[in-house]
């Protein structure tokens, strides 16, 4: 019996959401007294995984694929999970993690639980807590099968240091996958900035900013904080900002440590998507705006005055 984790890389480096998966996998492996095995594609350096307590790494080369290959990656994960006798496969809550999860579960004939927060509540049968109703509620789900694939909700467990780094066995090998009728031709990066999914801090603007020409307020603050930029639905519907920045129930979920909402009223559909952010700050002229009920900190004030001041003070602080 073992616990298998999928470690996602970007340009050879481990993504933060996958380091969280490693910490989470270690805690489960400790509870189950089983080894922790990582599978990664195109990973340059496995030492970071040893610091997280991974016992064995399958470092698969990506020579065959220039890009993420869902068919090969899922087949490889299932072949290794089977040969290692794994009962649990854990992926992150990233776009690729959530893409692989159900496919791996179907091929592995396992139960699939997405949006899992926290360690399992029990192991036999496996029971987890997961968010549902787009973060408006949680449910406790019990697997009817012994084999389970979990997608861990981003930022719900955290990255933890391991006292003793473990010795790592590295295995490089290739696994077979059937040909797929889908082929990635290219990847377009939206910007060089951090993406909403990966960001610790997200700065978001709503209709209160009056027009796209004022977005430098959001971008300047975001750049000082190293944050991703986001927006409300009407802002992307009107074409002020790209669709990829729309957050909320019908847009992207945000699970950052800090979410700063500027000129966003805080409609229920917006709040649903950002509920799992840890600390929420609102800046709005209207003290009655619903966002004040959901936020931890708030300023009743005009974005056009408050935001530039906030940005310059933070900048001074960072430079100091």
């Amino acid at each position: 019996m073992s616990v298998l984790i999928y470690i996602e890389t970007r340009e050879g480096k481990i993504k933060k959401s996958s380091l969280e998966v490693a910490s989470y996998g270690r805690a489960i492996a400790d509870a189950k007294k089983s080894p922790l095995i990582a599978v990664s594609f195109g990973l340059e350096d496995t030492s970071l995984l040893s610091e997280r307590g991974v016992n064995k790494v399958y470092a698969i080369s990506t020579e065959q694929d220039a890009y993420f290959n869902v068919n090969r990656y899922s087949s490889t994960l299932v072949q290794i999970a089977t040969s290692e006798g794994a009962e649990l496969v854990i992926v992150s809550g990233s776009a690729n993690g959530r893409y692989l999860g159900p496919i791996v579960a179907a091929k592995f004939e396992a139960t699939y639980f997405s949006n899992v927060i926290g360690l399992p509540l029990s192991y036999k049968p496996l029971e987890v807590k997961r968010s549902c109703f787009t973060n408006k509620a949680f449910n406790q789900s019990i697997s009817h099968k012994d084999k389970v694939v979990i997608s861990l909700s981003t930022n719900s467990f955290g990255v933890h240091d391991q006292e003793n780094s473990s010795e790592i066995i590295e295995i490089t090998s290739d696994y077979e996958a059937s040909a797929s009728a889908l082929e990635v031709i290219s990847v377009e990066k939206s910007t060089d900035k951090v993406s909403i999914a990966d960001a610790d801090i997200v700065v978001s603007g709503g209709r209160g900013l009056k027009g796209p020409e004022n977005w430098h307020l959001i971008e300047d603050l975001a750049s000082v904080l190293g944050a991703a930029t986001a927006c409300s639905k009407p802002v992307s519907d009107m074409g002020w900002r790209p669709h990829s920045e729309h957050v909320g129930q019908t847009g992207k979920p945000v699970a950052s440590n800090l979410y700063i909402a500027i000129g966003v009223s805080g409609a229920i559909q917006h709040l649903a998507g950002i509920n799992s952010s840890k600390v929420k700050v609102v800046i709005n002229t209207d003290p009655e705006a619903p966002f004040f009920k959901a936020a931890d900190y708030g300023i009743v004030g005009d974005a056009f005055e408050v935001v530039p001041e906030l940005t310059s003070k933070l900048k001074a602080l960072k430079e100091a």
């Binding site: 776009a95 082929e183 031709i185 990847v187 909403i196």
Partner: peptide, 14 residues
Amino acid sequence: LQREIDGGKEILKG
């Protein structure tokens, strides 16, 4: 086809 990924999009053919 196109798939939205974290921080961009993939262009695919199928």
